Simulated assay, not measured.
Amino acid sequence: MEEVFRTNDPVKLSYIRHLMAEAGIACYVLDEHTAYIDGRGPMVPIRVVVHPDDAERARSELSELDQDG
């Protein structure tokens, strides 16, 4: 799996999931529950990962979103 985005913004994360679904790209969200336990602080970023074959297309779909931090 290859990381394509990091965020702690739940609204942005929802939008990312929507964009990936619309593009037909399977994405997986890592550390979401850990970040919520931490209080959504910057200590534990929520990572969005995809299959390496889809990484470039996913980055293209997400290119207009600003990374957190």
Rank of each mutant, 00 (worst) to 15 (best):
H51E: 11
R47C: 05
T34D: 09
V49C: 15
H51C: 02
R59M: 12
R47A: 14
L62P: 06
T34E: 10
L30F: 13
A35I: 03
M20T: 01
A23E: 11
D66Q: 14
A23Q: 04
D66R: 14
R59Q: 14
H33Y: 12
G24V: 10
L30Q: 10
G39F: 04
I37T: 11
R40A: 09
I37N: 08
L30I: 05
L62E: 11
L19F: 15
D31H: 14
D54A: 07
L65P: 11
T34I: 08
P42F: 01
L30R: 11
S60F: 04
E22G: 00
M20E: 07
I46F: 09
Y36L: 09
D38M: 05
S60A: 12
G39C: 02
V50K: 09
G24R: 02
A21S: 12
V44W: 08
D31P: 05
H51N: 12
E56A: 15
V50F: 13
C27F: 07
A35Y: 08
S63F: 01
L65R: 15
R57P: 00
L30S: 06
T34Y: 04
Y28H: 15
D53F: 00
L62F: 12
G41H: 13
Y36H: 11
V44G: 01
D54C: 06
G24H: 04
I25T: 08
S63W: 03
E56Q: 13
A58V: 08
A58I: 06
V44C: 06
D66P: 00
V49A: 15
V48A: 11
I46A: 04
V48G: 08
A58H: 11
I25Q: 10
Y36A: 09
S60W: 04
S60P: 00
L19R: 15
R59C: 09
